[in-house]
Design a protein around this nucleic acid. Structure first.
Lengths: 115, 115
DNA sequence: TTGAGACATACGTTAATTCATATATACTAA
DNA sequence: TTAGTATATATGAATTAACGTATGTCTCAA
């Protein structure tokens, strides 16, 4: 992450913020899960995830046909703290998304990183 | 503040973020001090401060010819925590501004709110 | 090797933000 | 009053960001 302004630009869009917070809450989510949870079309979600990846807020990992995104553990501590505080105090902002996610059938299973 | 997205939109501009952090650090600053500190023209600073006021991140108080801005104490705790964490870990982002501010002559004296 | 699902990106358009300049308002001091 | 300083806002132009649609790549399974 370049500077705090760039960091906050990443959080300053509804789609991106919802994705980030959902991922922070669930550890790891794939694109189709996010697409379902926030009820937006896939290219839109994908485009925003690409931006978060480019700014190094997220890391991705391919597993079969799916790509899972997670918070970049190399983020500076203050940035992690900002995300954590936002998540902890804004559950109402995410309820609908969490409901959609939980009602989703056929969620892809996570495999361990290594076997 | 309406929602976390609006809050982060407020932080997602260099001029606004610098103003906010400088104010958080100094308790209270007037427009001409901010204009000096961040080295931008007055209408630009004023416009961004107006936006932060409108979103209820800042409160203002007129004292004579000056208008002093301070962080709104009614901000939700998580938002205050976000600002505090950002300030604490991004001093390098502000050094030039702090230097300019400290070298500024004729800074208006703060009067107490009441006598 | 073909088809289908998951994901990424390119492209042109639209919408939102930011800007500099000009000007208005508020206050102070003469 | 008038002049001067501090601040706010209006306006139109310029920049940036977000969008939908179309299409490309990758993987798996038949």
């Amino acid at each position: 992450m370049k500077n705090p302004v760039q960091f906050y630009k990443c959080l300053a869009d509804e789609t991106r913020l919802r994705c980030l917070l959902l991922i922070a809450q669930e550890e790891e989510l794939c694109v189709c899960e996010l697409t379902q949870a926030i009820d937006e079309i896939q290219p839109k979600v994908s485009r925003h995830l690409a931006q978060l990846r480019k700014c190094e807020l997220l890391l991705d990992r391919r597993q079969g046909q799916w790509v899972f995104y997670r918070i970049n553990p190399a983020l500076p501590d203050w940035a992690k703290a900002v995300l954590a505080a936002t998540l902890a105090s804004n559950q109402p902002f995410l309820v609908k998304n969490m409901n959609r996610l939980n009602k989703m059938g056929d969620r892809p299973a996570r495999a361990q990183a290594c076997c």
